[in-house]
């Protein structure tokens, strides 16, 4: 039997995202050249939600894209399986833009490394920032987030599950202990 603990409920997630939205605006001094890119799959809905919050605050629409990093992973040849490839859809130019990458959980940092390489193949952003809902530690690369919803110290064997859906009411972050 696995032990489960809810560490964030729907309201908590909502409040964190609101704060992160304001932090993104503060750090970038507004919305000029600002775009959000969610990493498949966990970051896509989060990016859309953050963009909606920012647009509501500033009164202008924020471009949102989605990025699949499967083809940029560093474990394709060693993982023993070819992963399913998701959709990349960035319907705007990245040249000279301030790109905020959005993901649900920051763990080893390898996904973010892959995402930055992938972004560079789509253009030359002015800068890339990183927003995550959960930072659970255990970095294997020199990468840190610019915006963090919640720091969640965890052990390697634990699993952090983020559930985000279009209907916000059932959103949650749970941590699962493996025995």
């Amino acid at each position: 039997m696995k032990k489960r603990k809810v560490v964030m409920d729907a309201e908590g997630i909502e409040r964190s995202l609101t704060r992160v939205a304001y932090q993104i605006l503060e750090k970038n001094k507004g919305v000029e050249d600002l775009v959000l890119v969610g990493i498949q799959k966990g970051g896509v809905l989060l990016a859309e939600r953050l963009a909606k919050k920012i647009s509501q605050i500033e009164g202008v629409p924020i471009p949102v894209g989605k990025l699949d990093i499967t083809l940029y992973r560093d474990d394709i040849m060693t993982s023993g399986k070819a992963r399913e490839i998701g959709k990349t859809d960035i319907p705007f130019s990245l040249d000279g833009r301030k790109v905020v990458l959005v993901d649900d959980v920051l763990f080893t940092g390898r996904t973010i490394r892959a995402a930055m390489d992938a972004l560079m193949d789509f253009g030359r952003p002015m800068l890339i920032q990183l927003a995550v809902l959960i930072d659970r530690g255990h970095r294997e690369l020199p990468i840190r987030a610019d915006f963090v919803g919640k720091n969640l110290p965890s052990s390697h064997s634990e699993e952090v599950l983020v559930k985000i859906s279009k209907r916000k009411t059932s959103d949650s972050v749970t941590i699962e202990e493996a025995f």
């Binding site: 083809l71 940029y72 992973r73 394709i76 040849m77 070819a82 399913e84 490839i85 998701g86 959709k87 990349t88 390489d117 193949d121 789509f122």
Partner: peptide, 23 residues
């Protein structure tokens, strides 16, 4: 299905992904 996903790579400006580096 996998082939469908690869259509996009060939229509991008940079038509190359690092997936099979070293192969």
């Amino acid at each position: 299905d996998t082939a469908d996903s690869f259509i996009d790579v060939s229509t991008r400006e940079i038509k190359k992904v690092p997936t099979l580096r070293g192969v």
